[in-house]
């Protein structure tokens, strides 16, 4: 899985064009990335990729970089 794959999956989940997202994108930049959008991302990470987000670290779900870090930490990035 590449960083671009992660970005594409975030875009698909939030239903925003992938070209609008990059590594520096943050939740506050997108209306669709509200609390429901964040929880939708969490569901995708846990259900489809079987990633765990440690308690107290859900703030990572508020930025592309944070989500990429979760994949990286789990050894899922190539």
């Amino acid at each position: 899985m590449t960083v671009q794959d992660v970005i594409d999956r975030i875009a698909e989940t939030l239903q925003v064009p992938p070209e609008q997202l990059n590594l520096e994108s943050r939740a506050s930049d997108f209306d669709a990335w509200d609390s429901l959008g964040t929880m939708s991302l969490l569901l995708v990470l846990t259900s489809d990729y079987e990633l765990t987000v440690p308690q107290g670290e859900t703030q990572k779900l508020l930025s592309v970089r944070g989500i990429v870090e979760l994949f990286e930490r789990a050894g899922r990035l190539s």
Binding site: M39, L42, L43, T46, T52, V53, Q55, T58, L61
Partner: peptide, 24 residues
């Protein structure tokens, strides 16, 4: 930060953390 109003005598819920707890 999201414009929700409350005081310290009222219920606070971190929805994303609670959701994370639930899913795990």
């Amino acid at each position: 930060a999201n414009g929700n109003l409350r005081n310290a005598e009222q219920l606070y819920m971190d929805g994303t953390e609670v959701f994370n707890f639930t899913l795990s």
